[in-house]
Write a protein that binds this DNA or RNA. Structure first.
Length: 577
DNA sequence: CGGACAAGCTGA
DNA sequence: CAGCTTGTCCGG
């Protein structure tokens, strides 16, 4: 009998399996996960072998041979994991298999790393509080949560895991992954940094480290370590919106291995998996920065500037100061490109924005053509509400150079003071002053995770200033007693857990439910196919919120629904609603 | 996705 | 009714 395999084409829109004959010459290279090329409907496309030795589901006359074997792809266990993730996040398998595959063709694997004994020796020297916590957690199969304050180095947890055998480390950013790779190499511990060293990772032996994509790494680790589990960078923004931590937890469950979730401020999702272990109170206090709360309760909102008196001296004297001003939620302003008049609503005079090809009033929703009422011009440009002005003001106030940092900023300019949105906290590694100019926009953000996100920002700032030491984190606020500020001041994230749990339970937000947001022109039609029942609630409108009792029921409800004509975006587990 | 083919529209 | 556009289906 000739061998037949089942192949998924690398065309996300197809998402169907097709059977192909395996020519004898290709035999040994064809296995589950192998990347192949196939003739499909008159063209050649790439694909992955998903099942081996199958009974063909079409007649022999239709069967065609594989056109080519391109090389190694994800191992069978990871193919299975992508299958699960496609269900869990209601997405297409090909997108996930791409994330799990090497960037170029891999036809040969290097020999696996062997000098593990030396690595274990290097590892044996690490003996601190973090190592002891990790060691205990590594004795348990499945998820563990370790609360390690922002400025305490989690590296010895990785070393501790490496001592026991191959490890997979998932970092919140590529930069962080590469840094860890360099540190491990310095200790002569074999390491493959993804995505570049996919082949070395597949060969096995030692540590594999990468950003969220490493959750699909082709190795067979004996443990998985997720760094900064709370960091939203672990979530893929494109569809399917999978989460590196959740993939790691499922992967560990399937493999029957420990999975360590590290964070200074664990999410309620992580805490639902395991009770946290924490370093001593003393160490935790040392790992959070001193918070200086600048109470602006009495200041006249109309008159008070964004920089209070109390902030001027710290900004002037710090060697590096970082100012965070979140513009999200502030109305974006449009100005006419030719006459610079601000675009206002003709009915109510409020600022208008341009979601699509018309101008819409943020207050009364009146829409009109994209035309300037003053000069008739048809082009508008975004005015970033006052940041440039703020930069100038800051320069005058501090009498030193101030640099604005945006996502477009390449090389960081030389300056004593930097200003930007919260993304700036990921661009600058060290500072002695971090100032949140408008913390209330975080604390009062109309998002169900606002508290968790605000605490994460303070954790990040604490890391920048190096924990409890001479550095300071300043917070301008009208809510000086807010529980998030209190938790960060006291270096006690646990204080936030109970109130947050009861709030989420009351409002039935995750982890007490699972959510999906369906948007795009086809959203109403798509949502109409979802039948509400005791497990599923479906909202109305152009953007539909779906709420289920849990992730499995949500996934089941979304599974296999026909996509209508228009655009449909299904975001499972949205973090910012 | 993109080719095949069928159903609808137009012009003489 | 040829010649074209638009829509739906399906691939091994």
């Amino acid at each position: 009998m000739s061998r037949v395999v089942r192949v998924l084409p690398d065309e996300p829109a197809i998402d169907k399996l097709f059977d192909y004959l395996v020519p004898d010459a290709m035999g040994p290279a064809v296995r589950i996960g192998a990347m192949v090329r196939i003739a499909l409907h008159g063209r050649r496309v790439g694909g992955w072998v998903i099942e081996d030795d199958v009974e063909p589901s079409v007649g022999d006359d239709k069967l065609r041979p594989l056109a080519k074997v391109r090389g190694f792809g994800p191992p069978a266990s990871i193919v299975g994991l992508t299958e699960w993730a496609a269900w869990r996040w209601a997405g297409r398998r090909a997108v996930l298999l791409r994330a799990a595959s090497p960037k170029g063709a891999v036809v040969k694997l290097p020999s696996p790393a062997r000098n593990l004994a030396g690595a274990r020796q290097a590892a044996a020297s690490a003996d601190d509080e973090v190592a002891r916590l990790a060691s205990a957690a590594l004795g348990r199969i499945g998820p563990s949560v370790l609360r390690i304050p922002p400025a305490l180095d989690p590296f010895s947890a990785i070393i501790e895991a490496a001592r026991l055998g191959d490890v997979l480390v998932i970092a919140p950013s590529q930069a962080r992954a590469e840094l860890i790779g360099r540190r491990l190499r310095r200790l002569a511990i074999p390491v493959a940094v993804l995505p570049d060293e996919w082949a070395r990772a597949a060969a096995g032996g030692g540590v594999v480290v990468g950003a969220r994509g490493a959750a699909w790494a082709p190795n067979e680790p004996l443990s998985i370590v997720v760094l900064d589990e709370h960091d939203e960078a672990h979530k893929e923004e494109r569809q399917p919106t999978w989460h590196g931590r959740d993939v790691a937890v499922e992967r560990a469950r399937r493999a029957g291995i420990p999975c360590l979730l590290l964070s200074p401020c664990p999410t309620l999702e992580a805490l639902a998996l395991a009770a946290p272990a924490a370093v001593s109170r003393q160490s935790e206090r040392a790992g959070w920065a001193v918070l200086q709360i600048i109470d602006r309760t009495g200041d006249d909102p109309a008159r008070a500037g964004l920089i209070s008196e109390a902030l001027v001296t710290p900004l002037r004297t710090a060697s590096t100061a970082v100012c965070v001003l979140n513009r999200t939620g502030r109305s974006r302003l449009l100005a006419c490109a030719s006459c610079a008049t601000l675009a206002r609503c003709e009915v109510c005079d409020a600022a208008v924005h341009q979601p699509y090809d018309e101008l819409v009033c943020a207050r009364c929703s009146t829409a009109r053509l994209v035309v300037c009422l003053t000069c008739g011009g048809g082009r508008f440009k975004n005015v970033r509400a006052g940041t440039t002005r703020l930069r100038d003001d800051l320069e005058v106030l501090t009498q030193r150079p101030v640099a604005e940092v945006t996502s477009a900023t390449g090389e960081l300019p030389e300056a004593g003071v930097y200003i930007g949105t919260e993304a700036i906290l990921h661009r600058i590694a060290r500072a002695d002053v971090v100032a949140f100019l408008d913390m209330d926009s975080e604390l009062l953000a109309p998002r169900y995770r606002a508290n968790e996100q605000a605490l994460a920002l303070l954790a990040r700032a604490s890391r920048l200033v190096g924990g409890r030491g001479p550095g300071r984190v300043y917070v301008q606020t009208r809510l000086p007693d807010h529980e998030v500020l209190r938790a960060a001041s006291l270096a006690d994230p646990e204080r936030l857990v109970e109130p947050e749990l009861s709030r989420r339970r009351g409002l039935r937000f995750p982890p007490f439910s699972a959510l999906a947001v369906i948007s795009g022109s086809g959203a109403p039609e798509f949502a109409a196919a979802l039948r509400p029942n005791e497990n599923i609630e479906v909202g109305g409108g152009d953007t539909v919120l779906v709420r289920a009792r849990d992730a499995a029921r949500l996934a089941d409800a979304l599974h296999g629904l026909a996509r209508p004509k228009g655009r449909v975006r299904v975001e499972v587990d949205p973090l910012r609603i």
